[in-house]
Design a protein around this nucleic acid. Structure first.
Lengths: 187, 187
DNA sequence: TATTGTATATACAGACCTGTATACTTTATA
DNA sequence: TATAAAGTATACAGGTCTGTATATACAATA
């Protein structure tokens, strides 16, 4: 894939998270990326297409990173659920953390018919389903229920962290999660 | 206070939540409110002023409603923490629920210097501080910790509910909260 | 009746936005 | 060397946005 295309995706992702999607014009994106609008519109038909690709790439990167971390650092399925929050803390406290893209995107496009909103909702569902898979493997009975609860803690933390950097929300989310997970494993 | 001023605030609040703040022009607001831009700008110096007032009113309404509910339906302080989630469920499932304004506003204005972002962050802090007060009254030792955890569950639910109406997230948040509260009361 | 306050109607300036058209330059490849 | 592909530079059309200017209508009040 073209290096410029990647650059545009990366710059757009950063600007969208730091300034907001609607507040970031394509002129700004190409200026920061060091290219021109003609090139941007060659790779992305519309700004909406660009937004959708930024979202998709962001979610893929996050999911791959998390899956790899869990795969190479844990063995027992029940261990994965616990370790999950250690890795999320690592993710959140990284200097280039910019929030979870699909959370902010859904807020900027509240209309449920909007393609950007739909993709955001889909990614949120996907993440919960991934958590449910982990819970199921660990032997949790109400895997969907626990997954939903954990997702609330996680997405809440991400949002709190974006609202105020260094909030430490994820630390308390981890504590709460530990309690919920242990109890769910007993039942 | 002028009836038109109230009308503008109400209409703006609704449009901001259903279409997004940046995507809602003042022309749309005055058209729906049945007035003109001249009148809007007489009561609110800038659009940003209007946004700030909408946020403030929304937060006040929410807090008053919740405080009143708790005051008139519960007696024991420890009961308040539990009942809290029943009232929140009532709030969320109301047909005119539109999400928590300060969550979406913070997402649309990510820059921490921005006045709208600052007010949103302040309201989030205020809500957590209110929860901490309830926890303290109930005799919880780490009141701030529990308050933060509950706020993650609550704000996560609000966000989930706005992402997809009827998600039922608040029901699972309530279950998780019950566990966390009971454990915190024991310590 | 005259005046004052409130709201309307409408037009517009200036800025910004997305997306395209046109012409030019560079680089790789056949 | 000729050709094609990729990118640059720049201007612009058409739309939307905030905020203001100007003139008018209407009601209450003195």
């Amino acid at each position: 894939m073209s290096v410029l295309r990647e650059k545009i995706l990366h710059v757009a992702s950063d600007l969208f998270q730091t300034r907001g999607i609607n507040s970031t014009g394509v002129d700004t994106i190409v200026a920061v990326a060091g290219t021109t609008k003609m090139t941007l519109y060659k790779y992305f038909h519309t700004k909406e297409d660009l937004i959708l690709e930024v979202l998709q790439k962001g979610h893929q990167d996050f999911q791959s990173w998390l899956s790899d971390k869990l795969a190479s650092n844990t063995k027992k399925p029940s261990e994965k659920l616990q370790k999950l929050f250690d890795f999320l803390e690592e993710w959140v406290t990284a200097p280039d953390f910019r929030g979870m893209a699909f959370i902010t995107a859904a807020a900027e496009f509240p209309n449920e018919e909007n393609p950007v909103h739909r993709l955001s909702a889909e990614q949120s569902r996907q993440f919960r389903s991934y958590l449910a898979g982990l819970a199921l493997d660990a032997g949790v009975k109400d895997a969907d229920g626990l997954a939903l609860q954990l997702s609330l803690l996680i997405e809440g933390s991400m949002q709190a962290e974006q609202m105020k950097r260094g909030s430490g929300a994820i630390k308390y989310a981890k504590k709460a999660a530990k309690i919920l997970i242990e109890l769910a494993l007993k039942n």
